[in-house]
Amino acid sequence: MSIWQAVTATAPARWIAAHPLLTLGLLSLPLYGLVLVHGDFRPRRMEPFFPIFFGLFGLYALACVIVMARRTSSLPLIFLFAVIFNLILIPSRPTLSDDMYRYVWDGRVQAAGVNPYRYPSDAEELTDLRDNEIWRLMNRLDAVTIYPPGAQIVFAATWRIFPDSVAGMKLVMIAATLLAGWLLVHLLKALGQPPERALIFLWPPLLMFEVAHAAHVDALYLPLIVGAFLLRARAPQDRVDWRYEAGIGALLGAAVLIKLYPAILAPCLWSLRDAAGRRRWRLALPVATALTVLAGYALYIQPGVDALGFLPTYGREFFNVSPLMRWLTDWAIANDIRWWLPGNLGMPLLMVLVSG
């Protein structure tokens, strides 16, 4: 018997082979725990983050291979570890991003009866709301908020439940991702796919750090998008049912109210072929989307208030962009085109072409 055969024949090796996802989940726990031990990652302390992240990503990749290669009955285990991974990171200070402090601030401003789009956070009118725990840790103190009305509604509601709580904001974002995972299970079943493949969404370390560590607002629209695709999967393909179309449109509109770029998914959700292969454009979907977005903005439109907030200025900034966006920007500059137009207009057009 070779050494390898001897090792794989041992009881621990047989147990690992019989419980691969449990093993990978348990191995991930101490790596997430190292985040709490290390503390702040910024500034000038990013180096330890990379071995932690890539170690977790390696374990996650193995888990993906397992759920893609075979059916398992591990759905409760998948959700259990997703919850544990998130809970471990809740006490971590969000040093990889400071956006969360703006969320809490916007909730505080609304609780004081002030429209979050009216004043920049350093305005004299908001002096009484400032502190060292939230306000001083925000970025862009001289700017009004950038986040759309749907996000503002969540910020305000969360502040009412968890006043000035970073951990409370994290809990809301985590709940949104878990809800998205639950909906994804049903979407996979509707598409005839193994529901355990929801692990691919629920276990990535990027999701954990973006949501449970940084509490990025993107988590809020995930269940809305998955819900929209679930309705599309269940909608009749041989006829137009306006109830499904309106429901999909309302969910898409709500996602756009959280952050604007889910709008690029409209062609994917809207233009479908029926059972005969004909293209069917369902008017109820875009109408419901538009009405939902308009209703959200109507809540914050007041005299002297620009409900777009900081967004127009942000759309013209040039930093922290992807290679594709940088290439588009360089191309625009070389051809005497306003450098911010290709990215803002070209990416939605690309999505339309891909979905067509």
Rank of each mutant, 00 (worst) to 15 (best):
T292K: 00
A219V: 08
I146G: 07
D128A: 15
D164K: 10
M138S: 05
G296M: 04
A18V: 01
V256F: 04
M325I: 07
L36F: 06
F155W: 07
P194C: 07
M138T: 05
V37M: 13
L187W: 15
D218A: 11
G296N: 00
V83W: 07
V217S: 13
V37T: 15
G25R: 09
A246W: 08
S165M: 05
V83Q: 04
T177W: 06
F319A: 15
L187T: 04
P120F: 14
V65W: 11
L24C: 02
I66M: 04
E47S: 13
V256N: 01
G181L: 03
V226W: 03
L31S: 06
I66D: 14
I264M: 07
M100G: 15
Y297T: 07
F79E: 01
Y103G: 12
G113K: 09
C268L: 04
R239V: 11
L56P: 13
A111Y: 05
P262K: 02
W339A: 02
W135P: 04
A288H: 08
W4Q: 09
I301D: 01
V256T: 13
A215K: 10
N320E: 12
E124Q: 14
N139W: 06
F318I: 14
L324R: 02
P51Y: 08
A82P: 02
L291M: 01
T177V: 14
H38Y: 13
Q152S: 13
E210I: 08
A198P: 02
N86E: 08
L283R: 12
Y147V: 03
I161C: 09
R108H: 05
R243E: 03
G25N: 06
R14L: 00
A276S: 14
A235Y: 09
Y244L: 07
I146W: 07
V217K: 10
A112W: 05
R45P: 05
N86T: 10
W182F: 14
M46C: 02
A11L: 11
N335A: 06
E210M: 15
I90G: 08
D336W: 12
P91E: 07
I153F: 15
L75N: 08
P91Y: 06
W203Y: 02
A151H: 15
D122E: 06
A290T: 15
R136M: 14
P223W: 07
M169Y: 08
E125S: 06
I52C: 00
L191T: 09
F310K: 11
D122K: 02
Y261K: 10
Q237Y: 12
R45I: 06
R14F: 01
R93S: 14
I248L: 02
Y32S: 03
A167R: 12
D128E: 12
Y101N: 10
G58F: 01
I161N: 09
G346H: 05
A6M: 09
